[in-house]
Amino acid sequence: MPADFSGPQDAAALVLQARALAGAGEAARQLLNGKNLALLSPSKDDQSASEFVQAAAALGAHVSLVQPGLDARSSARQVEDTARMLGRLYDAVECQHLPAALVQRIARSAGIPVFAGLATAAHPTTALAAELDGDASPADKRRRILQAALIVSMA
């Protein structure tokens, strides 16, 4: 199953990690240093794709845009082979604008954290930004929640 952070314990862990990031300063820039993330999305120009890249890069990760090449009609073997290859090349995968069933199939075979639209406005973690204290902008709070999700899932 893709990592969705929809449970109450998951949400609490993300908020706690996001609060810690707020005080981490320069040290946060190294938390994902050397990690390679894949962004499976038909478009790199999408707002949520840009937000994911910025959040990960601010932690030191490298993000590669990967054209999915898969759809709901892809054979089980195609999905499994692609997912295993992604698992060898990357430390985590963010899937945006892909069918939920396809993302679930990828997550079963990848062997790494797979996110289903983590940086999209429709993701359950979006609401968690409101739980963060301080006078940071809503965009900065959302970015911290995204970063917390990456850190928690890749630790």
Rank of each mutant, 00 (worst) to 15 (best):
P2F: 04
A3T: 09
A3G: 01
D4I: 13
F5D: 09
P8W: 13
P8R: 14
D10F: 01
A11Q: 15
A12L: 09
A12F: 07
A13V: 05
L14N: 08
V15F: 12
V15D: 07
L16D: 15
L16N: 15
A18P: 10
A18W: 11
A18S: 08
A18T: 13
A20H: 11
A20R: 14
A22W: 03
A22C: 03
G23M: 08
A24F: 05
G25I: 07
G25T: 07
E26G: 03
A28K: 00
A28S: 14
R29K: 14
Q30C: 02
Q30M: 05
Q30L: 12
L31Q: 12
L32I: 06
N33Y: 09
G34M: 12
K35W: 00
L37G: 07
L39Y: 09
S41I: 13
S41C: 14
K44E: 10
K44P: 02
D45A: 09
D45K: 07
Q47F: 07
S48P: 12
A49H: 13
S50W: 01
E51I: 04
V53Y: 05
Q54W: 00
Q54Y: 01
A55C: 02
A55L: 01
A55Q: 00
L59E: 11
A61P: 00
A61G: 00
H62Q: 06
H62R: 11
H62C: 01
V63T: 11
V66F: 06
Q67W: 04
G69C: 06
D71P: 03
A72K: 06
S75T: 15
A76Q: 03
R77F: 03
Q78I: 05
Q78D: 14
V79M: 04
E80K: 15
E80D: 09
D81Y: 11
D81V: 11
D81R: 15
A83V: 04
R84K: 15
M85R: 12
M85K: 13
L86M: 02
R88M: 14
R88T: 12
L89P: 00
L89W: 12
L89H: 13
L89Y: 13
D91K: 12
A92I: 10
A92Y: 02
V93K: 07
E94R: 01
C95V: 11
C95H: 07
A100G: 01
L102P: 05
V103F: 06
Q104K: 13
R108A: 15
A110C: 08
G111C: 06
I112H: 07
P113M: 04
P113Q: 10
P113W: 04
V114L: 03
A116Y: 15
A116L: 12
G117L: 11
G117Q: 11
G117K: 09
A119K: 06
T125D: 03
T125E: 03
A127S: 15
A129P: 00
A130D: 15
L132W: 05
P138A: 09
P138E: 07
A139K: 05
A139Q: 13
D140W: 00
R142A: 10
R142V: 02
R144P: 11
R144T: 00
L146C: 04
L146K: 02
A148K: 11
A149F: 11
S153C: 11
M154D: 05
M154H: 06
